[in-house]
Design a protein around this nucleic acid. Structure first.
Lengths: 339, 339
DNA sequence: TTGTACGCGTTATCAG
DNA sequence: CTGATAACGCGTACAA
C-alpha cells in the first residue's frame, strides 16, 4: 500500500518537499499564501505524516511520556487526570504507555525516548530496586511517583515524589494498637517484593515492636506471586485462607485498599461483623473506601498533590537540567467506621 | 548525543550491517556461531535498536494495539488482562495506548498503524458515530468493544463486540417497574451523548412506556458536560442535585456502576435507606458492586467474554482479511440487595 | 522565500 | 551464509 508522502503533496502543489515540510511544521520562513495552499491540499488528501520518519530526524518534540506499571490501579486514575492538565498547561503533549510485566523500567525508558524524542518521563508505580546503576542510562529527566527508588546516581537527572510508606503504615498500625488490638493480621505483598509493599510490611512490624507486641508469622499473609497484586480478588482469597487457619485476630490491615475491600467481603461472608469482631484498615485512600459500608479506615495518599508535584519537578529538571531533590509528601490517616 | 548503531556493532564484530540486522531479527539465514557472537557484543554494549528507523523500513510486525478511550474506567481492567493473555497466545505482542480527549478514533488509528506497522487494533470505548465514512481509512482490521458503531462500510475490515445497551437497560428498568416502582429517576450521560449512554437512556424510556408510566423530564438527570463522565463524583453530585429538586421517586437507575455508587453515598448522607426508601441500580457489573453494602443490583457485562471474543474476531479478520459479523453478547441482570 | 540533496538507522534485495 | 547497497519518509543545511 503505497502511502501518500510529502513528496506527493509537493508535486501536487508544484512546490518542493521542504516547502511542504515547512508548512507542516509551522516554520516562519514561508509565504503565508504558500503555506495556506499547502495545508489546504494536505487537508483534502489522506496524507498522514509518518511519525517514524519524523522522529528519526527530529531531535526534539515537547512530549513527555507517562509510563504506568499497573494500568488497572485505580489509584493512578486521579493522578493521570491531574497530570494531563498540568502538562497541557506547559504546552507539552504527552501520552500514556503501559509497561508490560516482563519489561524493565530503564529499558522501557531508553527505547521510548529514542523512538519519540521525549523530553521527560513520569513513572507511575514500578520497582527500581534492581536498576540503581542503570538509572543513569535514562537520557532524559524523569520522576517516579509512588515507587521506591534507590539512591539516584549523581550523574542522572531524576527525582521522585512519594509518601513515606513505611512511616505511614507504622502510623496506622500504631493507631490500631492504641485502640487495644493485640492480634493484628496483615495482608502483605508477595515475599520477594522489594517495593512499597515491603515498606508497608516493615512499618507494620515496627509498630508492633514499638507497642511490645510479638510479630506472629501466622498473622502475616503473603500474596501469592501468581495472583494479580494488590487486587480485591487477592484480598478476598487471602482473608478466606487466613480465616481457615486461624480466627485469633481482632484487626486486619491490608497494604492496599482494594485488598481490604476484598477481605471485608470474606469477613462478612463468614459472619464476622466489622468493626465489632474484626477491625479493618487499608492503604491508599481510594475514593471507594469512603463509599463503603462500613466506611473503611485508610491511609490517604495525596494523589493530586503527588501528581502536581511530579509534573512540576519534571519541568524544573527539563529547564535547569539539574537533578532535583526527591519529595516525600505526608499522607493522612483517615479514621472511619471500620475500626 | 551520538547514539550507538548497528553499524558500530558491525564494525566491532568485523561483519556487515545486514548480518547484525539478521542476528537481531532472528533470521534463519545466519550461522549460529556468528549470531551468538553478535548478540553477545550487543548485550555488552549499550546498543538499543532504533524503533523509528525499524518501523520506517519494516512492513510487518505482529503487533496489535489496544486503544482505550477512558483509561480510568475500571470496567476495562479485566478486559485488558484477558486480552493480554489471548494476544500472547497468538505470539503477537501488543501495547496499550490512551486516546486523548480531542483525538478522533480514526485519526488515532491511522497514525499509529503507520508508525508501528500494526496488524490490528482493538478499541476499548470510544464513539464512532461521527466517523462512519471515514472508518474505511483504517488500514488494518479492527474491533470495537463496548462502543456503539454505525454500520460498517463494506470495504472495511472491522467488527465489534458489545452488549445491547438499550435492551439490557430496558430489561433492568422493566424489573424495577415490576417491583412496583412508579417514579424511577435516571442518572444519564450528557445531553449530547450519542454513545452507549444514550442507548441506556433510551432503554429506560422504552421500559417506562411499556409499563404505561409517564416519562418525567425532571426525573432524568443529565450529566454536566464538563464533569468526568460515568464517575462516582458525578453520580454523587447529580444525586445531591436531584434530591434538592425533588424527593418524589422511589428508585434510581444510573447508567454506570460508578455513578450509582456515588449516588448511594448521597442518598445515605441524606438519611435515605436503600432499598427501603429508594431502590438503586447500576450498569456494568463492576466487581465493586458486589462488595458493597447493600450490594448493588446491576447489569453485568460479560467482560471476559467480550475481551476473548474481540481478540478472536480480530485474529480471524487478520487471517481471512474478510470482514466479520459483529457480536452482541447477552448481559446478566444481577439482582442484589439494593432493590 | 523556495528548491535540491543528503542523511537519520534499519531492513530488504540481490549478488556473491 | 554473508556483505554491499538501495530504499523507507522526512527535516534541514545549503544553494539559488
Amino acid at each position: 500500500m503505497g502511502n501518500i508522502t510529502i513528496r506527493d503533496i509537493a508535486k501536487q502543489c508544484g512546490v518542493g518537499v521542504s516547502t511542504v515540510s515547512r508548512a507542516l511544521n509551522d516554520h516562519s520562513d514561508i509565504r503565508p499564501e504558500t503555506r495556506r495552499r499547502i495545508l489546504e491540499a494536505v487537508a483534502k488528501s489522506d496524507f498522514v505524516p509518518n511519525n517514524s520518519a519524523r522522529n528519526l530526524k527530529r531531535t526534539d518534540s515537547k512530549t513527555i511520556a507517562i509510563l504506568v506499571r499497573e494500568i488497572d490501579n485505580p489509584f493512578f486514575s486521579v493522578m493521570i487526570r491531574v497530570m494531563e492538565q498540568e502538562i497541557r498547561r506547559e504546552k507539552y503533549s504527552f501520552f500514556i504507555q503501559h509497561m508490560e510485566n516482563g519489561q524493565d523500567e530503564v529499558d522501557a525508558a531508553v527505547e521510548i525516548v529514542e523512538e519519540k524524542r521525549l523530553r521527560g518521563i513520569i513513572y507511575l508505580g514500578g520497582d527500581f530496586q534492581s536498576c540503581e546503576e542503570r538509572l543513569s542510562r535514562i537520557p532524559v529527566p524523569f520522576v517516579a511517583c509512588t515507587a521506591r527508588l534507590p539512591d539516584i546516581p549523581e550523574d542522572c537527572i531524576g527525582s521522585y515524589v512519594t509518601i513515606n510508606d513505611k512511616k505511614e503504615s507504622r502510623h496506622l498500625v500504631d493507631y490500631l494498637c492504641h485502640e487495644g488490638h493485640k492480634k493484628i493480621a496483615i495482608l502483605a505483598s508477595d515475599k520477594k517484593d522489594t517495593n512499597i509493599g515491603q515498606a508497608r510490611l516493615e512499618g507494620y512490624k515496627e509498630a508492633l515492636k514499638a507497642n511490645h507486641l510479638p510479630i506472629c508469622e501466622n498473622l502475616i499473609c503473603y500474596q501469592d506471586e501468581k495472583e494479580a497484586a494488590y487486587s480485591m480478588e487477592s484480598g478476598y482469597r487471602m482473608m478466606k485462607k487466613l480465616l481457615k487457619e486461624t480466627e485469633d485476630f481482632t484487626a486486619v490491615f491490608a497494604i492496599s485498599d482494594l485488598m481490604i475491600i476484598g477481605a471485608c467481603k470474606a469477613l462478612l461472608e463468614t459472619g464476622k461483623r466489622i468493626p465489632q469482631d474484626v477491625a479493618a484498615a487499608g492503604f491508599d485512600g481510594l475514593a471507594y473506601t469512603g463509599f463503603f459500608e462500613p466506611s473503611i479506615t485508610t491511609v490517604v495518599q495525596p494523589a493530586e498533590e503527588i501528581a502536581r508535584e511530579a509534573v512540576a519537578s519534571l519541568f524544573e529538571m527539563i529547564r535547569t537540567k539539574k537533578r532535583r531533590e526527591g519529595k516525600i509528601l505526608p499522607a493522612k490517616l483517615e479514621i472511619r467506621k471500620s475500626t
